[in-house]
Design a protein around this nucleic acid. Structure first.
Lengths: 198, 198
DNA sequence: CTTGAATGAGACATGAATGTCTCATCTGCG
DNA sequence: CGCAGATGAGACATTCATGTCTCATTCAAG
């Protein structure tokens, strides 16, 4: 049946369009449907046939980002071993998708009143749970809330994706920069003599 | 002369409009000129008389943000005492303007090709210089570049301003959260037994 | 070859935000 | 009072992205 082939074809094509759009919107978040279509190598008409409108496209990108986040989360095995290592694995897994996530992160700011996709809520809770586990095991300090640590991780991911895109930092340092700063902070450790009064 | 009074009057009014716009755009970055005018308690016509257009308004807000950043930087005395304390002072000084800065931060992403205001460059260099000083004095680790630390600070400021605006974290913790995470990281310190192989 | 489906190109209408304009009103000052 | 400047309200044109539509073309299957 040509009908079956049709479905398969559409699926891969849709995925290709989605990834092209992600790559473009990562660089230019205000790109028009024309530009998105051109970047994907299709016409605007075809783009509209696959995604009802810009809104639908962004929603699909959001779903893609959520799926990639959840896949990264699963691959990182956040419940296994030291929380410190789990955080390292998580950032390493997320790194390839940081651009898209940065776009979605800033896009979320614009959603004003609307309630956010529940997928993010699940991811938030999983990440916060990882931090909470680290606190419970004594690996992590307990004076910073898991909610804040989760937000901070997102912010660092977005900042790093950004800084890399603008050429301010080297792409190869991505994971190391984020993980080291998040885990260890700026202060040099193992040198307690320098801690002045708070 | 009424002309003199005119100048003064315009100046304070302009400042009021600017601050209203900053407060509104901090919450809703896509607010229209109508909304900005309404928020400032003036008509759209008057708003247009003071700022040639939305672009001019954003530029003026950028100039305001730069001025506030430079004032904060000066007040923090980044060259005095331990770099650690200087970072604390800097974040504390910047805190009141974090909302505006977060707006400008995300707005900058949209500027695509245009070169950014040189004011930001100066501020970037001053902040990076502070981190560099901390590295030189041995307070800060040297495996993270000053450029990245600067970006990370901006990202954490924006994330925190955001998280506070959405009610995910308490406003009173703002400075503490950022400073502690940036300086000390998530990992609990003074407990070297837990450092596994990298 | 013929047919059907998908596509590309482009016209067209729509809606939103912007920028410009005019005019009535208000206010302070001479 | 009379005037000048500033303001508010609103009409108006413009621009731009979007969404919808039609039509010719291409391509693969029968």
């Amino acid at each position: 049946m040509s009908h079956l082939r049709y479905c398969c074809f559409m699926a891969v094509d849709r995925d290709h369009v989605l990834r092209s759009a992600a790559a473009l919107l990562t660089r230019k978040s205000t790109a028009t449907m024309d530009e998105v279509a051109k970047a994907a190598g299709i016409s605007r008409a075809t783009l509209h046939r696959q995604f009802a409108g810009r809104d639908a496209l962004v929603r699909a990108l959001e779903a893609l980002g959520i799926a990639e986040c959840e896949a990264a989360l699963e691959a990182a095995r956040p419940g296994e071993g030291p929380a410190t290592d789990a955080v390292r694995r998580l950032v390493a897994e997320v790194e390839p998708h940081a651009g898209l996530l940065a776009f979605l992160y800033s896009e979320n700011q614009l959603f004003e009143g609307e309630e956010q996709n529940e997928g993010w809520t699940r991811i938030d809770e999983a990440v916060a749970g990882l931090f909470r586990r680290g606190q419970a095991s004594g690996e992590f300090r307990i004076d910073l809330t898991p909610a804040w640590l989760t937000e901070a991780l997102y912010g660092l991911l977005a900042s790093a994706a950004w800084a890399v895109a603008e050429g301010r930092v080297a792409p190869k340092d991505f994971t190391h920069m984020i993980v080291e700063l998040l885990l260890g902070g700026v202060r040099r450790q193992g040198d307690p003599a320098r801690r002045n009064a708070s």
